[in-house]
Write a protein that binds this DNA or RNA. Structure first.
Length: 185
DNA sequence: CAGCACTAATTCA
DNA sequence: TGAATTAGTGCTG
């Protein structure tokens, strides 16, 4: 393909302005909802400037709809779709990011569990490193990874740990809507 | 080699 | 009990 030019978009969700960048149809970066369009774009294009990464309003519009649905409270599964670009990561980091991506909406996993999934049972701290550099939050739901002792753990994406907690509550409150049918609370 | 989004064990109120 | 410290840990730049 000759079209390996990177493009980006920023669109409004109920939580703020969400940033999305892709290349060759592969999502290579996302930023969680920011208070303004500019803030989202700035966070999205840290390396290259907007001149090199053209804006395209309808970029991956289906995905935009799904992301929007997520913030509206619908159950959305990003575990196999869209395709993402993780090519510049080490095998270890890729394994961790891919394992993380399998965590369902509303579910949680510990740093240790992710380490085990990648065959490195004692690499919890290294897992934290990988999460800290996750380029595609939400698609790779790094906010669903918490500490073994029940603590939240860190969060370096937009909004910090407050955003992490808000997203977890958002996902958990969905479950509650359905729980009255079966196991009561 | 130093620095981490971790964790289990120890220490000290 | 429980907060605070100390080791131990594995990957990355």
């Amino acid at each position: 393909m000759a079209t390996d030019i990177m493009r980006h978009t920023v669109f409004k969700t109920p939580w703020g302005y969400f940033g999305l960048a892709c290349r060759d149809g592969l999502v290579c970066r996302t930023v969680l909802p920011a208070p303004s369009r500019d803030a989202a774009r700035e966070a999205l294009l840290t390396e290259a400037g907007p001149d090199e990464v053209p804006f395209e309003r309808g970029l991956l519009s289906i995905l935009q709809d799904r992301i929007n649905a997520y913030f509206e409270g619908e159950k959305v599964d990003f575990s196999t779709d869209p395709a993402v670009d993780l090519s510049h990561f080490s095998p270890f980091s890729r394994a961790i990011l891919m394992a993380c991506r399998q965590i369902d909406m509303g579910q949680k996993q510990t740093y240790t569990q992710l380490a085990e999934a990648a065959g490195r049972p004692h690499a919890a701290r290294a897992v934290g490193n990988v999460m800290a550099h996750n380029p595609i939050p939400l698609i790779v739901p790094c906010h669903r990874v918490v500490r073994t002792d029940g603590g939240l753990g860190g969060f370096s994406a937009i909004g910090g740990t407050a955003m992490k907690e808000r997203m977890l509550i958002h996902e958990r409150s969905r479950e509650r809507t359905f729980s009255f049918a079966g196991v009561g609370g």
